[in-house]
Design a protein around this nucleic acid. Structure first.
Lengths: 172, 172
DNA sequence: GGAGAATATCTTAGAAATGAGATATACAAC
DNA sequence: GTTGTATATCTCATTTCTAAGATATTCTCC
């Protein structure tokens, strides 16, 4: 037989677009979902942040205000877990909201290490003013899906989130 | 008729848990999906970041490496739009990857303003080593859903993301 | 009731990212 | 060609956030 012109290794390196095709189907599906999930989240977050920025707030600050608005006074640790920031982050954000006179710290009678975060009257008034508009902005961003599709998506994502969060716990 | 004891305004303010029930059904569904989407994203991102941190990389750095690994050399602007960072951010991240000798900048012959980002051999080797493990970690994080459910979720989120991104464009 | 482990928040240094503007180049219309 | 506008990247000041450790308090178990 004559000499065989074999595809050199370097060719595979130079055409790595082919790479995703080399992983199995389950992995390809999962990675695709991860990319799409990231983009969808970023798009809605950008829309929400733009809305909130008009009132001089960041999404994280708004997250605290919203939690206090809907649940009432909460321990700082509870707020921290709810909006997913570090312990230093919650202190930083609280300091700023206190400086803006939207939130106040209250001491906890049963545990002197702990503190409550609570809306001031000014914070209450601000949320009453801007929450409906923000809710409308988020709702508008979701209008690509019907209400039924939104419920299906929520159910699937809730399951996914729980599984992923559980795995993260294990590795602690 | 006898006197009517009307619920005072202050009561509504003091029991704001009731507030979400005051918005219409479509808004409640959308807000619920937004919260669940955020948590699912955060959980998977945390899992991915933990995996990547073992190799001394951040998710954003890995995003650049992955793009170059799969697509080949790209203009910085393309990379920037793909991984969703600011123009300053892409310069910052590239500088660091260049310092680690994983990526290099190449000039563009047809446009002297532009530059390509490309993996170095060291970067290629690193990605070949760590990408499969990372893909497995993401896939594992998604295992709460069957492959079919993942496809359904991806389809829904793709539609949602497009709509939300389109709205963001409009307000530019 | 005392020692040690656990917990809640705060402090600090610095990492990560943004946004406005600077610079250089390209393109379009005249 | 020249002028004006758009584009690609970079610079720099600032904002946002984290991680590690400090401090104060509580809980557990003997």
């Amino acid at each position: 037989m004559g000499p065989v012109t074999k595809t050199p290794e370097s060719d595979r390196v130079l055409h790595p677009e082919a790479h995703p095709l080399m992983v199995d189907d389950a992995t390809r599906t999962a990675l695709r979902l991860w990319v799409i999930l990231s983009r969808a989240h970023a798009a809605v977050a950008a829309r929400g942040a733009a809305d909130i920025a008009r009132h001089g707030l960041t999404l994280a600050e708004f997250g605290i205000l919203e939690a206090l608005y809907h649940v009432g006074p909460m321990l700082l640790g509870e707020v921290q877990r709810r909006i997913l920031v570090s312990s230093g982050g919650i202190t930083f954000l609280m300091d700023r909201l206190v400086a803006k006179e939207l939130v106040e710290r209250r001491c906890c009678n049963t545990d002197r290490r702990a503190r409550y975060a609570a809306l001031t009257p000014k914070g209450q008034a601000l949320m009453a003013e801007i929450f409906p508009g923000h809710a409308a902005a988020i709702t508008e961003a979701m209008q690509g899906l019907t209400e039924e599709e939104q419920r299906i998506a929520a159910e699937l994502l809730r399951t996914m989130g729980r599984t992923a969060a559980g795995l993260a716990e294990d590795s602690r």
